[in-house]
C-alpha cells in the first residue's frame, strides 16, 4: 500500500515528506517504547506511536523506518520536522488513538510483524 493511501485511511495530516508518499508500506508496528522499535529487522514499515519527541525520529532513522504516524492527536515539534526532513521521512499526524489507527490499517491489509 502506498503511504498516500495510508493517509486517506486514517484521515491523517502529512506534516513533512509529501514527495515521498508513493513509497510502499506493507507492515506496521505500534509502540511508545523506542527500545522495542529498535529490535525491528524488517522493511516497508510504518511506525504508529504516541511518543512525540526527537527520539522517535532518531529511532526511526536508526531502524530505517521511512514513515511515522503520530496518533492520539500528538503534535510534532519544529526540531522533529527538521530531523525528519534530513532523513527523507514522511511524518503524519492523526487524531485517533494508536489502537484505532492500527486497527484501521490492519483492516486495510497492513500486516503485523509478529
Amino acid at each position: 500500500m502506498k503511504i498516500k493511501e495510508i493517509v486517506n485511511i486514517i484521515d491523517g495530516k502529512v506534516i513533512t515528506g509529501n514527495c515521498f508518499q508513493e513509497q510502499e508500506i506493507s507492515k506496521g508496528f505500534a509502540s511508545d517504547l523506542m527500545s522495542d522499535v529498535l529490535t525491528i529487522d524488517s522493511e516497508e514499515i510504518v511506525l504508529i506511536t504516541g511518543l512525540a519527541n526527537l527520539q522517535a525520529i532518531r529511532t526511526a532513522e536508526m531502524s530505517d523506518i521511512a514513515c511515522i504516524i503520530f496518533a492520539r492527536n500528538k503534535k510534532v515539534t519544529p526540531e522533529m520536522i527538521e530531523l525528519a526532513k534530513e532523513n527523507n521521512m514522511v511524518i503524519i499526524e492523526c487524531p485517533s488513538s494508536v489502537f484505532k489507527t492500527a486497527g484501521e490499517l490492519y483492516k486495510a491489509g497492513i500486516q503485523p510483524l509478529f
Partner: peptide, 13 residues
C-alpha cells in the same frame, strides 16, 4: 522513560 527508553532493554539490544 518519557523519552521512550528505560525499559531495561538497552544492553540486550
Amino acid at each position: 522513560r518519557e523519552m521512550g527508553f528505560g525499559a531495561g532493554m538497552g544492553l540486550m539490544n
